[in-house]
Structures are given as C-alpha cells and as structure tokens.
Design a protein around this nucleic acid. Structure first.
Length: 423
RNA sequence: GGAGACGUCGCAUAGUCCGGUCGAGUGCGCCUCACUGCUAAUGAGGUAAGGGGUCAAACCCUUCGGAGGUUCAAAUCCUCUCGUCUCCGCCA
C-alpha cells in the first residue's frame, strides 16, 4: 500500500509510476476521489457522534421530564450515528479497494519497459567451452539420472507433472546447499529461521500476493489457509501489527522453507526437468530497515546473493529488472541469472526486491525512535532456490563421463567428496 | 476431540457480577524537572496507536484479541470467531 498522504501531495509521481508499469493511471484519480468522499463521510459521522456522546453524558444525571426530553433527542441522534457510521464504513472500503490496487512506486532508476527491457549490470565468471573440452553438454535431467540425484518419473507418478524426488546425492546436495546458505547468512548478520509454510489469509494479503499473483497461490479450501510460495511471506508477516525499535535495525532474517507455486499460466514453459516446479525448497533473506537505508540494504542483499553464486562457482549475470516486470510490491528488483549450458542462456536463480514501505504498510509494521513512530522498509532476496541451483551446479560442473564436480565450498557438507559419481 | 480459565494503553495488573465523567486506575519500565558532591533513594509531571481538523494549536473521532448484535449509551450484556493457559483423550 502506498502512502495516501504522499499521493494526495503529489499524484503525478504516482501516475508516472503506474504508467511505467503499464498499469492504470486513472486509478490514481479514483483514489483521490474516494479519499475526498471518505473524509466527507468521516466528518459527518464525527459531528453527530460527538453530539451523541455529550448528550449521553447528561442522561445519567437528568431526571423526570428533562431526562425524557434528552432521551428523545438522543434517540434521533442514534439513528443518524448508525447511518453516518455505515457511510464511513462504505467509504473506507471503497478507498481501501482502490488504494490496495495501486502498485508500489517504481524507483526512478528502474529501466522503463517490459520483460525484455532489463539492463545487464554485470557478468561474472567464465563459461566453460565444452566444445574445446571435447564433449557434448548434458542437461540436468540426464546428469541427475546418471548420478542418481533426481527422479522425475516417480515424482510425476506420485504427485503429477512438475514434481520430482531428490534422491541419494541429490537429497544430500540440497542439505549441503541449505547449510552453506544458512551458515553464510548467519555470518552476514541474519537470524536463521524455519518458518511455517502454511499461513492465514491476513498474512498472504499483507504481502500482496493475493492481488495479481493470486492465481499462483495454493489455497486450502477446507481450512482457509494458504501454502506459501516463498519464505518471504512468513518472514515479513513475522512482525505483522508490530512497532519495531529503529535502534535495532536492520533486522535480518534468513528462512528455509518449502515453496509452493501453482504455475498457472506457464503451461508448456520449462516443462523438462526441475527448473520450474510446483514445489521446491528455498533459503530466503528478509530485511526490515529504516526507509533511508533501504537502497543500501538492497545492494547488500544483492552482494550476498552474488557471494553465494561465486561460492558454488557458477557463471552468472545481474540484471536490473524493467518496470513492467516488477512485482506489485517491488520498487526495484535485481535478478541474478546463472548460466545454463544446455540452454546456452542465462536463467533466473535469485531475485532481490526493495519493497520500500509498501509491504510494511500493508502489514502494519512500523518503526519507533526518539522522533516517534514512522514507516519502515522491507526487502527480500533469494539466497538459494534449491532446484534451480541444482540445475546450475549439475550442468556447469559436469564431466565428460556424466559425473559432476562438487564446488569446494560444498565439500565440507558432503563428507569431503570431490565428485558425484555416475552410479 | 472433551472440560475449564483467560485475552485491557511497553510489561504486570484493576475495572466486567450491578452498562453511564472509563480512552480507562495502580505498580514496574521509560522521559523531563526538583533535591543531591556522584550514584542510589525521594518528590512533581509526562509516557498508546490511527484518523479528522488547524499555518500551527486548540479541539474532535476511532480502537479494551477480532467480527456482529442489544441499548439513548458497551471494556462491562448477548452471539460467533481467533488466540493463550490448565487438565483429559489422541498423536509425529
């Protein structure tokens, strides 16, 4: 939710932002109109309510005719209070509906445009030349089979398409990745968390995932609960309805959780392997920080993501995501894309968003210092999305015989092994 | 799943039976001031959030877990709901 007072002051910058996203600019005017209507309703209600209260105080003291007279007056007022109160509720709801539909203000530095209009910030690492090494590239599905790390057929048998089993070395590789990620994050000042992956509507709404993204969220009808698509949800909602001490900022959390995604609207996309699945596990970073530090914190999250990709020795590039491709909560987003040799292109493996005060407002999370209570910023970033990371590791570290070299950083968690051997 | 107790302004509590200066008392914490060589102690005052309003104030409204209801009037009565605790049952 964006700041209504700010929108009132400077509606043009909100219009510009909506335009950059390719979203409605007239919505801004609808919000303004709804705001005016709400304030009119509020003052109408408050006037009668104040009168009712002051009369009400007299009732208990008055007696006889006087009392009867006051009661008669107050009875009329009571009706007016009910009517005007209902009007306020309606006006509130109308304003909320409009306001919640507005996306976060796009950072002025974000490249304007659609999905393909991102700007490449940098490329890091060296892609292997498999032709020069003298063998044909295998993709992660073949490699996973050869070393016995991934069983997609049985995943489909048991759970359907876009499901898989990690088996043997694959299962151990996940645990190694998780430990490496959690250890690194902890060293970088994050509090490790294992959060619930099933949340109530209030949490899911607060994050902003029930808007445009709703079709990709699994909902448990019988219990009115949602399966989270990322630990961002329970980590952000952790402090829902709280006022945090700004002196303790930034608060950094790193959560390991399963992620569930319906992948509606992506039929036929990435159907092979485990690149795009309905469930995967992920280690996610989340920061609560003072508004003025948010951009710096965003760079830090990106740096932590890069540090991890470098540790697993995978070539990658960083892109500045264009305005039209931002989530509604994000003001700016950087993606890290790992090189996928079998596809000969970079594919998204991590993503970090600066949500400024947008999410915190929706979740009613604020900060307090000597000056009083005010808004705070939230940011999130992937440290390790297991399945895509496994794709990147298997493909980039594959050997001519189908075995896979284990990056050194992971070896301590895999009993010191240097290779996943063909079974 | 069964039985019971309880959710009040940072924390702990009073108020709820018998509705009306209760937006709410007290203690602790915190802030300011006074006293004091310093600390401690003591005394005085202050100390929720959101909204409307104003140049700024004054002032007004909302919120006593949440949602409804009764009433001229609800922290207080009624219904539902969420959560916490105790006991029993079941269970990883």
């Amino acid at each position: 939710m964006i700041d209504l007072a700010a929108l009132r002051q400077d509606p043009d910058s909100v219009r510009k932002s909506q335009e950059a996203r390719g979203e409605s600019t007239s919505l801004v005017d609808e919000v303004l109109a709804a705001d005016v209507a709400r304030r009119a309703a509020v003052s109408a209600f408050e006037t009668v309510r104040a009168e009712q209260k002051s009369l009400g105080a007299l009732v208990s003291k008055a007696t006889g005719d006087e009392k009867a007279e006051i009661l008669a007056k107050t009875k009329v007022l009571s009706e007016q209070v009910k009517v005007t109160e209902a009007a306020v509720r309606e006006a509130d709801a109308a304003l909320d509906e409009k306001l919640l539909a507005l996306s976060n203000i796009v950072d002025p530095d974000v490249p304007v445009g659609g999905e393909d209009d991102f700007v490449v910030i940098k490329e890091v690492g060296t892609k292997r030349d498999f032709a020069a090494e003298g063998f044909d590239v295998r993709d992660h599905v073949d490699l996973g089979n050869l070393i016995g790390a991934i069983d997609i057929e049985r995943g489909a048998k048991v759970s359907g398409s876009r499901f898989y089993y990690l088996t043997g070395p694959g299962a151990m590789l996940e645990l190694a990745l998780v430990q490496l990620a959690m250890n690194k994050a902890q060293a970088n000042g994050f509090m490790p968390m294992i959060p619930p992956a099933l949340v109530k509507p209030a949490a899911m709404e607060g994050i902003g995932f029930l808007g445009q993204a709703a079709e990709n969220v699994y909902r448990l009808e019988a219990d009115d609960m949602y399966l989270v698509g990322t630990a961002e949800v329970p980590l952000a909602a952790y402090h829902m309805d709280e006022i945090l001490d700004l002196a303790e900022m930034p608060k950094r959390y790193v959560g390991y959780s399963p992620c569930y995604r319906r992948e509606a609207g992506s039929h036929g996309k990435d159907t092979r392997g485990i690149f795009r699945v309905h469930w995967f596990d992920k280690v996610e970073m989340f920061s609560f920080c003072p508004v003025e530090d948010a951009q710096e914190e965003h760079k830090r999250l990106l740096a932590f993501e890069e540090e991890f990709l470098q540790a697993i020795e995978v070539p990658y590039r960083v892109i500045d995501v264009a305005s039209g491709d931002l989530g509604s909560s994000a003001s700016r987003k950087f993606d890290c894309e790992a090189w996928v040799p079998s596809q000969e292109r970079y594919r998204e493996v991590t993503s970090t968003s600066n949500c400024t005060t947008f999410q915190a407002r929706r979740l009613r999370i604020r900060g307090r210092n000597d000056e009083g209570v005010g808004p705070i910023a939230t940011l999130n970033g992937t440290l390790c999305a297991i399945t895509r990371t496994i794709v990147a590791i298997l493909e980039n570290h594959q050997q001519p015989d189908g075995s896979v070299r284990i990056p050194e950083a992971l070896r301590p968690y895999l009993g010191g092994a240097e290779f996943f051997h063909v079974k």
